[in-house]
Each structure stands twice: as structure tokens, then as C-alpha cells.
Amino acid sequence: MGPKLRPEASSCVISLAHGTPAVILACRAILSDPARDFNSPNTPLQSLVLDYSIAYFLMDLVHYLIFYPSDILFIGHHLATLFVFVTCRYVVYHGAFAILVLLILAEVTSLCQNVWTLASARRSDLKFAAKVYDFLSPPFYALYSVVRGFLGPYFVYRMFAFYLSGAADRVIPKWVWMSWVLIVVTAISVSILWISNLWIEFYRERERKIEKKVK
């Protein structure tokens, strides 16, 4: 692997160490909480998962500031995500249920996405990587589309409706939950745009391959 690809590969490895374990821990933290409401107090296990995710995003943020300082979009994403986690964990001490469900929806595709990213980076010079990329692309795109295009927006709608009712105003100030909703809606919108572009490119490549076979 060349020097240019090592920082990207390192970021993927860091993400792999966080993504799937975070999903498992978040699921356990949610299921062990009898309240499971948008304004319920954070349990010790939920707080631990938030700390774990904060550590990951801080580490990956430093990585990007060192190796990709011009990647404003990704750096902004990490800063916004850290704002959500930190305010939930250390400012309001409530709402971890909602934040951890969003974490699960964000990271459930992590394993597949990181393997796909590594394969994409090496597919031009490694046949095995090209095969892995071609094999993973359709299921990864489909899973990502369902999670970010349907499940995510539906959950955010429920979250917004609950907070808008004022039921959480006593423990979660309006400026906090409004910031959460704005950040999550923006992140989901960018994700939908990203996966839409990947689907477009996927079908373009498919058409080019069909045209080559016909010729």
C-alpha cells in the first residue's frame, strides 16, 4: 500500500474499531434502559457508550486535521457530531436514548462501508480488491439507502415531534434539541446525496460494461 493510501486506510481501521462495537454496546445500553424515551436520563452504560464514541470522533478528527486539513466537510461532520455527543453526555445528561439510536443507524453500515472504501482505494491495482468492490457495492448501497433514506428520517421525525411538543423542555433546553435535530437532518441530507451519486455512478458503469460486451 502506497504512502498516499495509508492515512485513508488508517482512518478506516480506526472506524472499524469503533463502528460495530459501538452498535453492539448502544443496543445493549438501550435495551437495558426500562424508560427508553426521548427525554429519559442517561444511564451509566449509555454514558459509557457516549464516551467511547466521543473518544473515537476526537481521534479521527485529529487524524483528519493532520492528513486531510482541507477536507472541511468531514471535519465539520466530526465537530458537529462531537457537539451532539458532548451536550448529551456532559451538558443536559438526558436524551441518550435518541442519540444512541441515531448512532446505531449511522454505524450499522460501518463494517461494510470501511471494507468497501478500502477495496475502492486498491481496485485499480489489485484484482482481488476490484472483485470485493464489485461484490460489495450493490448490497452496501442498498443497506445504506434503507438506513439513511428511510429509517433515519422516520426516527428523526419522531424525535422532532416529541421535542416540539415540549415534553422534554424541562430537562433538554430548546437550543440543545433544536441543534441536535438540525445537525442530524443536515447529516442525513448529505448522506442521501452521497449515496444517490454512488447509485448513479453504479448504473453508468453497468451501462458501460454492457456496451463493451455488445461491441
Rank of each mutant, 00 (worst) to 15 (best):
D51G: 13
I75C: 02
Y52N: 12
Y90T: 10
L48T: 09
L58Y: 04
S53I: 04
Y68C: 10
Y56N: 00
L50D: 00
L73E: 14
L61R: 03
L45I: 08
V49M: 08
T81L: 02
M59P: 06
G76F: 06
Y52I: 14
H78Q: 11
R89W: 04
L45W: 10
M59A: 15
V86M: 12
D51K: 14
T43S: 15
L65Q: 14
A55M: 15
T87N: 04
A80M: 07
F85T: 01
H63M: 10
D71L: 10
G76I: 04
A55H: 12
V49N: 02
L82N: 01
M59T: 15
F83P: 00
L50P: 01
S53R: 02
Y64N: 14
F83L: 12
F74V: 05
P69I: 04
L61S: 07
V62K: 12
V49A: 07
I66H: 15
Y90D: 13
T81P: 01
H78M: 07
T87P: 01
Q46W: 02
P44T: 07
P44R: 11
S47W: 08
S47L: 12
Y52S: 12
H78N: 07
A80L: 08
Q46L: 05
Q46H: 08
I54W: 08
L48K: 15
M59Y: 15
P69C: 04
C88L: 04
L61K: 03
V86G: 03
F74M: 08
Y68E: 13
Y52K: 11
V91D: 10
C88H: 00
F57M: 12
Y68I: 10
C88V: 09
V91F: 13
R89H: 10
S53F: 10
D51T: 10
I72K: 09
T81E: 00
D51C: 14
